[in-house]
Write a protein that binds this DNA or RNA. Structure first.
Lengths: 215, 215
DNA sequence: ACCTGAACACCGTTCAAGT
DNA sequence: ACCTGAACACCGTTCAAGT
């Protein structure tokens, strides 16, 4: 089928299929040839619409970042509530597309939506009265948490991070046995750990903020 | 050279060279063929000593985990000091081999040293009086921070995460401009952000611990 | 303008064969 | 026992050619 009346391909059609394959078949399953055949086309054809596979993945990440609910985060009166809303929205999105997490970790790069996100959070912290340098660090801290948590869950979290052979743990890692018993409600623990970590951090930042103001 | 008197290869010789290449040439530079030629050997020969490339990388990660200073962390009297020492030692090691970070994120899997590490920290928290379920979450929280921070630094941190074109930021991301001015002392910010994040978390956990005890 | 065929320079991995 | 040659089944990417 050479020269169809309406083009078979477009950047967005390729991106959509790529994300679909990434979600369902994982990182190893995502090849240019695989995307192409799923679209009824040859691999070479993709290069008329995307420059490289790397750039395609970068744009997928940026599309995801664009969906992080920043408006809600900024509507909060207090910066603590704003950070909490941002972190939760961010994490929820990553949880939906876990196979994308390793790419997200490559930093804001040339991704406009990622930059807009960083800019918005930084601005909110400045407006709340954080000194610029601290605003940078507080924003970074929360993103560490989100990325670290997403990364851990990507790797299976508590549900798959440990083997199923209980006895192996009993023998050699006595303290972990208790942790291993939590195997059953693993997803619960993954989510709760993030919440505990987030609240502990926010607590600490609140205290730091008071110290900075009174110091 | 078929059948030398002393074998040219061994698991540890392959691992050492692989780490060397990974550190100096990055993830993309690490191929089985590259390791082989660096050792004066053909790629096929490696498979007499390592099962797969994946397993080779897993063992590199585990060797790294084995070097995290757990003894020091456990010698601390208080659990707060122990967590702090562990987190710092863990992070310092990852900073030395940033290209390994994406693999670390794949969880403890079948890596004995990683498991030993998790076991030791969990045990210390139990001994300090944390309820088992919370001990799991507190340990996970700190590892989120370490992995998130390492992941971010792997991607270049503040030094490389943003472009060099200042004007691009001035126009579109007004709040980030301040952050961008920090470009000059980027490494400092990367390290300080981790410290700020760590101390905030520890502060929060200390408060949580008190609440649990008195509640 | 848009897609294809065929090729290039790579991968990880296997396995019969050499010594 | 230890390494090699050659191959297999893949990759991402390019580019002249077709319509």
């Amino acid at each position: 089928m050479p020269r169809p009346s309406t083009p078979l391909l477009s950047g967005s059609v390729i991106k959509a299929k790529a994300l679909e394959i990434l979600d369902s078949e994982g990182l190893d399953g995502l090849t240019m040839r695989r995307i192409a055949t799923a679209l009824g086309v040859r691999a070479a054809s993709l290069y008329g619409h995307v420059a490289t596979k790397d750039e395609l993945l970068d744009s997928l990440v940026d599309d995801l970042a664009a969906q992080v609910d920043i408006a809600d985060a900024l509507q909060q009166r207090d910066w603590v509530g704003g950070l909490r809303a941002w972190a939760r929205s961010y994490r929820a999105l990553l949880a939906e597309h876990p196979n994308l997490v390793p790419f997200l970790a490559r930093g804001p790069r040339n991704r406009p939506a990622s930059l807009r996100q960083a800019d918005a959070i930084h601005g909110a912290l400045l407006a709340a009265g954080w000194p610029p340098r601290y605003a940078t660090m507080v924003g970074a801290s929360v993103s560490y948490l989100v990325i670290g948590a997403a990364m851990t869950q990507y790797s299976g979290g508590f549900s798959e991070g440990f083997s199923d052979d209980v006895r192996a743990y009993l023998d050699r890692y006595p303290n972990l046995y208790d942790a291993h018993r939590l195997h059953a409600y693993a997803a619960e623990i993954d989510g709760e750990s993030f919440e505990v970590a987030l609240e502990a951090s926010l607590d600490g930042f609140r205290a730091l903020f008071e110290r900075l103001k009174s110091g």
